[in-house]
Each structure stands twice: as C-alpha cells, then as structure tokens.
C-alpha cells in the first residue's frame, strides 16, 4: 500500500537545496569510512542520528528494521572472524577483531541510516534536479528516477503473481532453499510480461506529455542556495577537513589489528 519512502515534512533539512542534500550524503559516506576504531566512528554515527532526528525521518528505519538486524548480526560475526589481533577475547576471536567488528557494524548501520534519511528528505524530482544542476543530462536523471519508481510496481506484481500461482496449486512454501528458488523461476515470466506491457504504456504516456519535445525545460520545484545551505556546506567542509587531517595523521586506528 504505502510504497513511498519520501516523507512530506517541512523541516530544516527538507528545505535544503538538493545539491546540499547530495553533499551531506557524500561527505557522510566518505568520512565515516576513514576510521577503524569504534570510539572514533561513534561521534560520526551520533551526528547522523541527530541529522535523522531533526529531519523527522528516523521513523522510516522501522520499515527496514528486519534488514538492519540481519546486517548487524552478519557483520558482527563476519568481521570478528575475518580480522585478527593480538589479545584473545574468547574462542578464536581477539579483542581487536571484536572492536573492529563493532566499528564496521556501526559504519554499515550509519550508511544505511544516512541513505534512508536522504530518501526520506528528498523527492525523486529534487534528486534529479540536483544531479542536473551538477551537470547530469536530464534524460539520464529521468531514467534514474523512473528506475526508482518501477521497483514498487514490480514488487507488487510479484506478490499478485505468486498468489495466482499458489491458488493453482504451486506449493511455494515447502522444500529446501534451492527447491524453493527453483519454484519461483516460472513466476518470472508473468512478471516480465506484465512489466513489459506496462512499460509500453509508460513510454506512450511519456511521449504524449511532450517528454523531450524541446531542450530547455522548466523545473517547477526550482530551488536556489540560501543562507542555510551555506551554513551546512561550511560545516561539511570543516568536518571533512578535520576528519581528513586526523586520518592522514594516523588517528582512529586499532593498534595490533590485521585486516584481510
């Protein structure tokens, strides 16, 4: 039913220019990956949580809570095993590896959260506009936004088709994983056929609305940089500079850790 991720709210962060929103996303993604030590990652994660809080977007994390749990568990297990250190903690896991696993998990969750905040505060149209202002051709931007838009439609199609086949006696629920995957294969045909039939109308409707009729196009939701954008950008530059300086000078590592 509710397929939109974007939350229509009027917060400080919603009002920013899409270019600023993209910059926040990029800086957050770069800076948080600098550090291996969870104590250094933590403040950055907190900043992201604050961002989400003031953008009133944390509610959207509920929708992906299941994925977050899976991510946390698998990342904790994987990194604990795959990294090595000197001080044994328990069984084959060393203290350094465990710390590193915490940092990696924090990073992963932060990235997902930041991504979710971005989607919650930015309309597809704004994102496309931002990308175009940064030099992307309109058609490419539109293709990206269409791809986003198609996902929920395809997902709901898959659900209906699975129901249709189950009512015909296709048992999708029993058997081991491989058997179950094999049973889903015939479902792909109706999914493709109905998607292609859809796309055809989509293409016609697009042309019928004058898509690409002329090169200069208006953007109804135009936006310009204002004071708030400059403040945020200044903050991001300082954050980036400080974090980079610290990184280059070797801060934020875990002594004794060997990574693969």
């Amino acid at each position: 039913m509710d397929q939109e991720i974007y939350l229509d709210r009027n917060t400080f962060f919603h009002r920013l220019d899409p270019r600023t929103k993209i910059l926040i996303l990029v800086v957050a993604f770069v800076v948080i990956l600098y550090f291996d030590n969870p104590l250094w990652v933590l403040p950055l994660s907190l900043l992201i949580i604050l961002h989400g809080f003031f953008a009133k977007s944390l509610i959207n994390l509920k929708r992906i809570s299941f994925i977050l749990v899976i991510l946390t568990i698998s990342s904790m297990v994987l990194w604990s095993f795959f990294a090595n250190g000197e001080k044994p903690l328990f069984w084959v896991i060393e203290l350094e590896a465990f710390e590193f696993a915490i940092a990696r998990t924090l990073i992963m969750l932060s990235l997902v959260t930041e991504g979710m905040i971005f989607l919650s505060t930015t309309r597809t149209e704004e994102f496309v506009l931002g990308m175009i202002r940064l030099g992307l051709p309109y058609r490419v931007g539109f293709a990206i936004s269409t791809a986003f838009r198609m996902v929920p439609t395809i997902v709901s199609n898959v659900f209906i088709i699975a129901q249709a086949q189950r009512s015909r006696g296709l048992d999708l629920d029993s058997g081991n994983l491989i058997e179950r995957i094999r049973k889903y294969i015939p479902l792909l045909i109706p999914v493709f056929v109905s998607t292609i039939r859809n796309t055809n109308v989509f293409g016609m409707a697009l042309e019928a609305k004058g898509f690409g009729a002329q090169n200069d196009r208006t953007f109804y939701y135009s936006s310009e940089f204002n004071k708030n954008d400059y403040i945020v950008i200044a903050f991001l530059i300082i954050l980036f500079a400080v974090a980079t300086y610290l990184k280059i000078n070797g801060y934020g590592t875990i002594p004794g850790l060997t990574k693969f």
Binding site: N157, I160, I161, Q163, A164, Q165, S167, R168, P186, L187, I189, P190, V193, S194, R197
Partner: peptide
Amino acid sequence: YVFQNPDHQIF
C-alpha cells in the same frame, strides 16, 4: 480462483 489480469497467471 481466476485472477483479474490473465497475464498474472499465464506462463
């Protein structure tokens, strides 16, 4: 059960 859209069940 016959679904509304035949394309959802034919393959």
